[in-house]
Structures are given as C-alpha cells and as structure tokens.
Write a protein that binds this DNA or RNA. Structure first.
Length: 1297
RNA sequence: AGGGCUAUAGCUCAGUUGGUUAGAGCGCUACACUGAUAAUGUAGAGGUCGACAGUUCAAAUCUGUCUAGCCCUACCA
C-alpha cells in the first residue's frame, strides 16, 4: 500500500525524515557509497560559535548544502568537514564584558593565562544552538570531526605556512614575510595601535573643533618652476590646507591631483599685507576670493586673478619649495635633495581645502603611500639602524620631540594634557601656537576654527593619531599579478564579484598587515635577538622543541615544556570546569575587589532590600551582599537556601544584557543556586510583594535542581565540548602566554625573544585547506585529493575576507587557486529591505521559522525567490506561497496517485514498464516535458544557478504535471478496470513524481526523501531483490536521472502547446458567452496557419475536444473565403536590410490585403520600392495572423485564432443537462461520504427539464455515477432539492444499493 | 572617498544577440469549477521599465551623467 495523508504538514515530514537519516546513517552512507577516486571537494568556511545562528546562516548553508547534495546525487564523493573559527577580537570583547574588565586589565588584574582560558570556553558558547540549527535545516556537514582553529595541530599548520612565506623570496630577494611599518590609528593616551574594528565602534567618531591652517609654501625659482613666474622678484607660493597644523614640521611634500586645474592668483598676504602670488585649484578659488574684487589694485588689499599658461596639476609636479617649519636636527642631505617638492596623487579632491594636500608621510596613510611612490624621503631624527626610517618628530606619548624648535616637548593635541593644564587661562593648543607662528612669519594664508568629525580611542576617549607602527607583513603585492591571473580561472557567482569587487581589489593590492597586538590568537612564530640582527621563524612544533633544547643547553631556559607531544585525551574538561567553579585566583581577586566596591556604593533599591534582609530579618535566613559565586558576583545570596537574589536596573532590558543574564543564571543554576530577579522599581514601590515572593521561594526546599534549560546551557557555556590539546596551565599550549616564555638561542649565542604580535585571524581561516588536515605533518594523501576545492560558498562580505585569504595563501605558497567555483550570497534583509538587527527587533529566528514552515519550504523560498547573490527581502508570506504552490501541489499529486493506486492495487514494477510508444500522447508529452526539465535542471545546476533550477521545477510541477497532465488524466485513474491505458497513466505519473523528487532533493532534502520513500516503500523488497535503481533506502543514495534527449519530443511539445492554447481560447469564449463547460457544443473552427498545422492539431484533437467539451474541429483555409488575414513587419529580419526605411515598410506591410499576403507566400519574393530604394521581401519578412472570422464568436492570442460554434440543439442541451445531473449526483455522493466504489440507486423527481436528458442519456448517467438503478418518481421520499440550472430546482435521492 | 550590487505592476521577480501589445506568481475584483479541495480555472484592473542625455530606423535592453538603497574597503589634507 502507498501511504495516504490527510494534510500536508512539512515540519512533521522534517522530523520523520531527520529521524530516519540519523537512525540509518544516511549522510554517512551518501559519502561512503561513492567511489573514493571521484571526489568533489568542498570547503566549509568556519563560523564562530560565539554568536547565535541567524536566518542568514540558513541561507548561506542552504547554498553550501544543496550543491554538495547535487554532486553526491551525480555520483561524486563529497566530504564535508565542518570547522569552527575560534580566535579574534569579538571573542576577546565578549570575555572582557562578562568578566567586567578591559584590555588594560589583562596581565594586571587578570593573568593572560586566565584570560585565554576564558576565551577558550566562551568560543563554543552557542555550539549547541549551531548543531541544532544544522540538524533542523538539514545541512549535511561532518561536525563530529571538525577542525578547530585554536587547536595545536591547526596552529602548527599555520606556522608551517608562515614559515613557507618567510623562506620564500621574491625575484629581488625579499622575503614574503617581513617586518615593516605602516601608518595605523594609534592612541598615544593608551599607548597602543587600534584596529579598524575598534575604530568603527560606536561613539569613536566625535565632532570636534580644531584650528585649521592654509599655509603658504614658497616656491623655489628654477627652470622647473620658471613658468609660474611673471615678475622678476615675484613671491610665488603654493597654498595647502591642513586641519592638523602639528603635522606641518613633518611636511616633506605637497600632493596635487594630476587632472586638477590650478591657477595662480596675484594677491596680498592677508596677515602681513605683503604682495604674493598664490597657487591653488581653480575650482577652490571661490572659497578664498570674491570675484567682485577681481582686478582691484593690489595695494588696496584686493585680489586679482591671472590665468596661467598651464592647465593641470601635472605641470606643477616636480616644483620645489622651501621647507615651512624646519627642524635642523632632522635635516639630512637626502632630505634637502629629494623632499619639499610637488608630487602627484590620484586621491586629491577639490571638495575642500585648496586642491593641494600638505603631505606628512608618518601621519597619514595616503601621505605615506604617495611619498613612497614618489620617492620622497621621510623626515625625522636619525635612526642608525634604518637610515631610511628616521624616528618621527612626534613620540609615542603624542609629544613633539625636544629637537623640534619652539614646540619641542609639547603634546600635539590639547586633549593629551591633564585637565588642569587645559583649563588654565593662558593655555593655548599646540595647533594654535603653530598657526600663530605661521601668521607672524608670513607663511599663513588663512587660520580658522574648523568643525569636523575625528576618531577617538574607545578606551581613553582621547583623539587618535595616525602614526607609523611596526608590523609584520605578507608581501602580497609581490604576488599581485599571479593572483589576478589565477583569479581569472575561478568561476564566480555572480561573475561581477570576481571581476569587480575581487578583481579590482587584487589590482590595487597592498601588503597584508598580519600583526595584531592581542592575546587570543595564533602567535607569530618568529624569534629575534634584541638587536634584530638574528631572527628565526619556526615552522613546526618539532622544530620548536629542538630549538628549545638548544636554549636549555645554552642555559637560557630551565626546561623544555615541549619535550613530549601531549595526547589530546587529557583530562582537560575536568581541569577546565575546576577553573570555572573554583575560580581562578586572579579572577577571584578581581571579583573580590569589585564586590567590595559595589558594597560601598549600593543602588537605592539594593539599599532598601538590604535593610529588609540584613541580620536575618527575613524569617531568620542569613543573606550576604555582593557575594562571590564562582566567577560572578551575586547582589544577595542566601547560602543555606541556595538562593541568589538579583536587583536589576533598566539596562537589563537590553537584548545583549538579557543574554548575559541568562548565561549567568544558567551558570548559577549549574552551581546549585536558584536565581530570583527583581527590578529596581519593584523593590522601591512594592517591597512587601518582593518579600512575599522571597518567603515563598525560601520555604520551598532547594533540593537538587532538575535538569532544566539552565543546566544544559551551562554545559555548553563553560565546558568546552571540543577536545582541547591541553588544559589550563598546559605547558604544551602554543598560545600566549606560554609561548612568550620561550627564549631561544641565536646562532651567535644571543637570546631570542618572540615577536609579541599575534596574526590576523583571517590568516587562520585562509589556512584551512591545509590546517584542517594538519598538513604537511599528517594526511598528505588526503590533502592532495582535497586541494583545491571544487566549490565554496559564503556571504559576499567575505570577498575580501575568507575568499581573499584562501586565494592569497594558495597563490603564494602553492601557486594554485584554492577554489574553482565560488558562490557569494547576499544579505538577508527584513521584508521592508532593512538590515536585520537586534536593536530594530526585526531579526528572524531560524528555529521559529523552520518550526512553523518546515526546513524545505524555508530553503526553497530562499533559493527560488531571488538569486542567492542578490539581497533577499525575507518575507514569511513568500514561504507560505512556496508551501502551498509547490509542496502543496506535489503533495496533492502524490496523494491522488496513492489513493487510486491503492484502490487499483497498482504497484510500480521497474522490471516491466510499458514502452513509451505504447502510451498515450499525453503520457509521452509529460515525459518529454519531464526530460526537458531534467536537461534544464542539469544545465542550471552545473552553472551554479540554483534559482533557475528551482523555478524550472516549480513551473513543471504546477503548469505541466498538475494542471495539465493530472487534470486531463484524472478520468483515466478512476474509470474502468486496469488496462493498458490505466497502467500507462500510473507508470507515467509515478515516473514524474519520482524524477521530480530527485531533482528537488538538493534543495528540499526532507520532502524529496519523504516522497521517494512513499513511492518506493511498497516495492522496496522487490527492488532490493532485483538490485534495481529503486533499491536505495533514501533518495540521497540514488543516482540522479540524467538528461536523455531520446525522451524529449519537441514536436510533441509543440503540438501540446497548441492544444493548451486552443483550449484556453475556447474556454475564454465560453466564458464570454456564458456557456458552461458541461454544455457540449458542436464544433470549433481553426484557421490554418501553415501546412503542418492540421496534422499537428489532429494529433491532440481528442484532448482538445474533451477538455473544452466540443464535438468536432473544423479547419478553415484561405479557400473558404472566411479568413481575413493581417500581416505585420518582421522587424528582426527587416531591420538590418531596410534601416531608415523600416518605418515606411511597416506601414506598407500592415496594409497588405489577403491577396497580397497570399501572393508573397506563394511566390516567395516581392519587390517593393520605398523612398526610391528597391527591396526584396520574402515570406519571413512578415508575420501573418488571422484577424477575424466575421460572424463567429472568436478569440485570438498570438498567431492562433479560435472560433466557437455556439448553436445549441435539443440534443446538445439534453447532454448538457445529463452532465449537470451527473455532477449533482456526484456531489451528493461526496456529501454523504459514500465510498468511491459504492453502487447506488438514484431516484429523480419527474421534472420537465430533466425528461429529455434522462431519456437520451439514461445509461451514460448510470455508469458515471455507478448507479444500478436510475428512476423517475412523481414524488420523492427524502432526498434533496438541487439547483440544476438557473432557477430549475429538482429533487434527487441517492442511496447505497 | 573608492569599488561593487540593486532599481520593471501594490508585493516578489522574469525579460535571451536591441525588434514594435513589457510578462509570471502573489494580492485585489468578478465569474466559474468541484471524485486533487489548506486545491483549481477564466477574465479584469494595475507599468512615462529610478531620472536625464546620447547611439540607433528601433532602447527596459547599449553608452554616459545623476539619484536612491545596500555591501565591502578606506577614512582623509
């Protein structure tokens, strides 16, 4: 028996199939049963379990999942190793928030050790949620053996890669890994560099008012600048604007836009009145000069204008000028020779300033680049080790070095001075002092206050400087061309991401700054002597061990912590939980201090509640304030009753705080405490209620806590489920701080210490192709078979993240792409098109959605609604639509099949199917359509275009299978005994359902498997016995049906297309004429389009006749004289030929008469003259249609016209009535819940309207409604009154015989 | 600031190498159908194809310039 169902409930199907997969290990089988040597390689981009999974993850993972499933069905072996990204700033920030510390506390209040342990545990916080969403959405990925970026093996592979880069040299002998410096945001107040992430934190950009200066740089008169001078002793100066006058002493160049037009203006210095000629961008002149003043005499303090013979900035390049504010101590011959000149820069704009940019390379990233490119030396105090890189004139505290005349020792930003100093009446910001100096020396053109936004350090709240900082770099720029070349071989979806966003990024590639001054990440494996003369890059643990041995021998280290390799089966979890529950000493100390501070400054509510609880006032229970439990402080705790009382302020309503509170509660629960929370207002306004609540809780026994939600969450929170290489204090850990204790010995016997930086976490994830297999230390063979990836997919935001790092590392180390095909998916927005964010409250919970609509409808909607790379406006109504239209229709179709198959005892017999040529036209048609779909589907999927594939399936299921094949075949299923026609119907429908299910399986894995299993359950044993294709237990183990052009019959599809359109037209006429379909009509007339037409339509004649309930088709040709034809110009063929005469030709052809059209059709050529030009027309040049059939009811669509004979005869009317009767009787049968096979006796009221019909169609009616008797009665016992036609009421009685 | 994507009916989206009535589904309105019924059919209303300019006999489609939304990178004198 085929299973039948009452209602479609996709979540139940999900659950059933999920269970089946798990019980039968279908995922594992889907991989293991495919041949090892036919692999399709997929890389999983590791998510971080530090945040909760969102609906966008469902989208991204659906893309990953479905192409892997598709390849599996094609017979590939698709291993899918999961992974977790575990390092990085978000994790550090999370930990700091929860421990209530800042970065500054690390190493002081909390040991780096304890800090790292906290990171390690936090990282996997939401792993359970991730695993759950993975299961529920049906994402097949191996999460039992994931790669984890914090594991020693992983880090070791990363080190190996770094060493490869370190050893690899460019043609000019430079290492791919080098230490250099770059201009980065730097906080002198905090003494640290800031990442762009930190700079993007809310509140860092503040509006401030600074002194801005337009300085005048005096042009040196020489051959290069001669064209600027008119008068003999003219004073020509270039104007440059700055909002940071403190950078002026460090000026070495002026940058101009090569395509900007500059003018010289003869004017006077506003502060001294001396005549001067200034150069600035033409478009900026209005900002400094009033046009009305033009031509006024200069001695009247007016300005004038003179155009110069040159037009663009290029003509300024190379001009030299006098240094504005010299620092004699910084002067060098190199500087004198090569600095203080005009250089070009594309990035210069004329939006503000003067169109000339004052350039101080140490204090601006653009400045740095421009200077470097132009070969301008940097200015600063001499650096014996690196003459090219002198020390900046501003030190790391943000002060001018003493050598700077007049301003030495001053902070460059007033905010760096203590508040008292700033408040002093005589205090003047350094910027202002510099501006005044310029004024006095006739070097200023304009000094004013300027309001702008400026970045501030999020920790100290003081302004940030851009400052040269030491960093380790990957010389990515050296591999730029190769990367671009290899990129061209990658198939990007969409292509524009590859050529545009990614390609252009590669073209302008900068070196990759690897350094991060952090604690939780992969340490840079480079050791250096103090004088930086000797250096060692470690590439494996083995090497490190050997080097440490040397250090021990040299007496630099006491012992070798890496002596033995430690197995991963250590009792780490235990050690870890001990840390959590007993509290690390450092944390304990911090918390103790915090608790004490909190006690000193209680909130009002806390004070009120304490008064009620202190001294055992509440039923004799002893309460403590600010009591430390584990790593948390409880507001109030009663140890004996195991109760924690929290009094919360309003900020606990914030989402992120709620989460934290939950975690905290979970933790306390797991430590055996109950937690009760009150809001401040409750305590203040309703203390009695609060106390009543407390009494109630205190009265109930603490007892052992039931295994509630809290407890399980606590597990995931604090006990890392993944194997740690070592527990806390594990000396073999490669993380900081342990690694920092390692001192190595240099070849010359000097101690070498590790470069303290960590590496960019993006390097971690870009290393996964190698590190996931611990390559090259293990699994060399596996790696070889799994590199590069055939396919990866992530969000488009990863273009310069993961996609780039994968590509860069693969190119530089292996001279290969890392992936061959990549799909980058867009964002998931809310239905209004807004970004989803917690604060807007428009976040869609994937669990809720999947629970409500099922995983498959959700997945399908996300793939079919828009291309994955477009942003998706997520709207639940869209899922409903998919559910009803696709899944509902297919479900109905299956149920229809199952219902009748069970009645007829039909079972699919794979061994014995009717050949297609023995089936009906309709059967062969739908099979043809099905295989057209199979072909389209493969083409789309091979092109990674899932949206096209989904839409093709939707179209087939709805338009062709359900609305045409099933509708027209219904009668074949329930009429008569099993015969060849019926068998053909069953086998055809079975095949359609089966193949459709297979095609759907990638995107809708649950439903497809459910369908497959239902279809094949009755024949499973036979299939297994005969080893036929349907022997597999799951659709995901089958072999995908391949395109088969032999099964596609284009001519048949065309015929059926005619049939569908003719029916549609005929029905529309009926509709217009109010002729119900059950009323048969005599004939339709079809004007003949071409010679093949008659034969084609005849092939589907029976279908048309029965569908529109008409007795015959009559074809009419030109000869009939009924036709009026019309012709239209075929623009496509004529356009090229006629050109400008096209319009006239169109008019001419539109006016062709029947005769002219026929003449052209017959003769094949026609000469026409248009505007004196002669052209030869062929029949292809016009599109002929029948316009009308005068005197008939017609309808037209495209080239087809249908006329309906609406003449009614008594015979037709009687038949119509008979059909109506059948329909009404069937309704009664249905209303009375008769079985489909019940035989009945029908008694009809003797009504005049019925007589003719009953007499003429007695047998027809009987057989249609399965009546043994059909009688007319004068009066009726029981039965019901039914409206037959308009206002014709008759009594009908139906009873089971 | 640079780069990228998107813009077509109330909504979600198609629209092939430019070709003359710009389509589909949902929604809406009306009418049918009823042994697939959480269905189905037919018809109707609804569009200066984001704006402007250009190329062309012909532009939703090609070119340019804008505008709006979003993403990434950078953060400016």
């Amino acid at each position: 028996m085929y299973r039948e169902f009452k209602h479609l409930h996709l979540p139940s199907i999900d659950a059933e199939i999920r269970q089946f997969w798990e019980d039968e290990k279908i995922f594992e089988k889907s991989i293991s049963q495919r041949p090892v040597d036919r692999s399709f390689v997929f890389y999983e981009g590791p998510p971080s379990a530090n945040g909760k999974p969102g609906i966008h993850h469902v989208m991204a993972r659906t893309v990953k999942d479905l192409f892997c499933r598709y390849r599996t069905l094609q017979g590939y072996r698709v291993e899918r190793k999961g992974g977790w990204d575990t390092h990085g700033l978000p994790i550090e920030l999370q930990v700091e928030k929860e421990l209530g510390i800042t970065k500054e506390d690390i190493g002081k209040k909390i040991s780096v050790d304890a800090y790292n342990q906290a990171c390690r545990t936090t990282v996997m916080r939401y792993k359970d949620l991730w695993d759950d969403v993975t299961r529920r959405m049906g994402y097949w990925v191996d999460l039992d053996n994931p790669y984890i970026t914090f594991e020693n093996d992983y880090i070791e592979s990363v080190w190996w890669l770094l060493q490869q880069l370190y050893n690899k040299k460019t043609p000019s002998g430079e290492s791919y890994l080098y230490k250099g410096f770059t201009i980065q945001p730097f906080s002198p107040a905090a003494g640290t560099g800031l990442s762009s992430h930190e700079l993007n934190m809310p509140g860092t950009y503040k509006e401030v008012t600074d002194f801005s200066a337009v300085a005048m740089f005096k042009v040196v008169r020489n051959s290069a600048s001669e064209h600027l001078f008119d008068a003999k002793d003219e004073d020509v100066r270039i104007l440059a604007w700055t909002t940071t006058p403190w950078t002026l002493p460090s000026n070495v160049a002026l940058t101009v836009g090569p395509n900007i037009e500059y003018h010289k203006v003869q004017t006077v210095s506003p502060y001294t009145g001396q005549p001067v000629s200034v150069v600035l961008a033409k478009s900026r002149m209005a900002a400094y000069f009033n046009p009305e003043d033009e031509g006024q005499p200069l001695d009247g303090f007016k300005v004038g204008d003179k155009k110069l013979p040159y037009r663009t900035g290029s003509a300024l390049v190379g001009i030299r000028y006098e240094q504005l504010l010299p620092t004699p101590a910084a002067s060098t011959p190199e500087l004198e020779a090569n600095a203080f000149r005009v250089i070009p820069g594309d990035w210069v704009t004329t939006e503000d300033g003067t169109g000339v940019v004052h350039t101080a390379p140490y204090f601006g990233a653009d400045d740095f680049r421009a200077s470097k490119a132009a070969g301008v030396p940097f200015i600063g105090l001499s650096n014996p080790k690196a003459p090219d890189l002198p020390f900046p004139l501003v030190d790391r505290q943000g002060k001018f070095v003493d050598e700077v005349p007049e301003f030495g020792g001053r902070f460059v930003k007033s905010e760096y001075y203590p508040a008292e100093v700033q408040k002093d009446k005589d205090f003047k910001p350094t910027d202002l002092l510099i501006a005044l100096r310029l004024k006095e020396d006739n070097k200023a053109f304009k000094i004013e206050k300027y309001k702008h936004t400026y970045p501030h350090c999020w920790r100290t709240d003081k302004p940030v400087l851009y400052y040269p900082l030491d960093s380790w770099f990957v010389r990515a720029s050296a591999a730029k061309e190769r990367m671009a070349e290899l990129n061209k071989t990658i198939n990007w979806k969409p292509a524009s991401t590859g050529t545009g966003r990614f390609g252009q990024w590669l073209e302008n590639l900068q070196d990759w700054n690897l350094s991060r001054s952090r604690y939780w990440g992969v340490p840079l494996p480079i050791w250096r002597t103090e004088d930086a003369e000797e250096e060692l890059c470690i590439g494996s643990v083995e090497q490190l061990r050997a080097e440490v041995e040397k250090a021990v021998a040299a007496g630099l280290m006491q012992e070798n912590p890496y002596k033995t390799r430690v197995s991963s089966d250590d009792d780490h979890a235990d050690a870890l939980s001990q840390f959590v529950f007993t509290g690390d000493k450092t944390i304990w100390h911090i918390l103790k201090t915090h608790g004490r501070d909190n006690r000193k400054s209680p909130t009002e509510a806390e004070e009120v509640l304490w008064q009620a609880l202190r001294n055992r006032k509440l039923d004799g229970f002893k309460f403590r304030r600010q009591h430390q439990i584990g790593s948390f402080i409880a507001d109030f705790a009663c140890i004996s009753a195991k109760l924690v009382v929290e009094v919360d302020g309003e900020y606990h309503n914030r989402d992120e705080q709620k989460e934290f509170d939950e975690a905290r509660t979970a933790y306390l629960n797991s430590a055996g405490f109950r937690v009760i929370r009150f809001a401040n207002q409750q305590v203040m306004n309703a203390l009695n209620d609060v106390l009543t609540d407390l009494r109630r809780v205190l009265a109930s026994p603490p007892g052992p806590l039931s295994k509630g939600e809290g407890e399980s969450r606590a597990d995931s929170l604090f006990v890392s489920p993944s194997p740690l290489e070592r527990g806390p204090g594990g000396e073999a850990d490669l993380h900081r701080p342990y690694i920092d204790d390692i001192i190595l010995v240099s070849p010359s016997g000097k101690p070498m210490r590790r470069e303290l930086d960590l590496i960019d976490v993006w390097f971690d994830s870009g290393s996964m192709p190698y590190a996931q297999w611990h390559y090259p230390f293990e699994n060399q063979e596996i790696f070889k078979n799994n590199f590069p990836a055939d396919f990866i997919a992530e969000g488009v935001d990863q273009t310069r993240g993961w996609f780039y790092t994968l590509h860069a590392i693969a190119t530089m180390v292996f001279d290969s792409v890392a992936f061959k095909n990549v799909v980058s998916n867009g964002l998931v927005l809310d239905k209004e098109g807004n970004k989803m964010s917690k604060s807007k409250g428009n976040v869609v919970d994937p669990f809720v959605t999947i629970e409500e609509y099922g995983a498959d409808a959700t997945r399908w909607y996300m793939m079919a609604n828009a291309n994955p790379w477009d942003n998706l406006k997520f709207n639940e109504e869209g899922i409903t639509e998919v559910r009803n239209k696709l899944f509902g229709t297919l479900y109905n179709t299956y149920n229809f099949f199952a219902l009748y198959a069970n009645l007829d005892g039909f079972k699919m017999d794979e061994q014995n199917v009717l050949p297609y040529h023995q089936r009906t036209e309709l059967d062969r048609w739908v099979i043809s359509k099905l295989y057209s779909l199979v072909a389209d589907y493969h083409a789309a999927m091979d092109d990674y275009d899932v949206t096209r594939a989904c839409r093709a399936i939707e179209d087939f299921v709805d338009e062709h299978l359900s609305n045409w094949f099933v509708r027209l075949s219904r009668r074949r299923f329930w009429k008569g005994e099993m015969g060849e026609d019926k068998l053909a119907a069953y086998q055809t429908l079975f095949e359609c359902l089966l193949v459709t299910g297979q095609l759907m399986a990638s995107v809708a894995p649950h439903f497809a498997d459910w369908l497959y299993r239902n279809l094949t359950a009755p024949i499973k044993d036979a299939a297994k016995a005969h080893n036929t294709p349907l022997r597999h237990d799951s659709v995901h183990l089958t072999d995908l049906t391949l395109p088969d052009s032999a099964k596609v019959d284009a001519a048949l599809e065309k015929r059926m297309d005619y049939a569908q359109r003719i029916c549609s037209l005929a029905l529309s006429i009926r509709k217009k004429e109010k002729l119900r379909v059950r009323l048969p009509l005599q004939k339709i007339l079809l004007p003949v389009l071409d010679e093949a037409f008659i034969a084609e339509v005849d092939g589907v004649k029976d279908l048309i006749l029965s569908e529109i309930n008409v007795k015959q088709i009559e074809y009419i040709t030109d000869a009939s004289g009924l036709l009026k034809k019309g012709a239209k110009a075929n623009f496509k063929t004529l356009g090229g030929k006629l050109g400008k005469d096209m319009k006239d030709a169109a008019t001419l052809i539109a006016n062709f008469s029947n005769e002219e059209i026929s003449a052209l059709e017959k003769s094949g050529v026609l000469e026409v003259v248009l505007n004196g030009n002669t052209y030869t027309l062929t029949p292809d040049d016009m599109i002929v249609s029948t316009e009308d059939l005068p005197g008939w009811k017609t309808a037209t669509a495209g080239e087809l016209t249908v006329a309906l004979d609406v003449t009614l005869t008594p015979e037709l009317l009687a038949e119509g009535t008979a059909r109506d009767l059948v329909n009404r009787i069937q309704n009664i049968r249905k209303d009375k819940n008769f079985n489909v096979t019940d035989r009945v006796i029908v008694t009809l009221e003797r009504h005049p309207a019925l007589l003719d019909a009953v007499e003429k169609f007695h047998d027809y009616i009987k057989s249609e409604v399965l009546a043994t008797d059909l009688v007319l009665a004068d009066t009726l016992d029981g039965g019901e009154k039914v409206e037959l036609e308009d206002e014709v009421l008759v009594g009908i009685h139906v009873e089971v015989n």
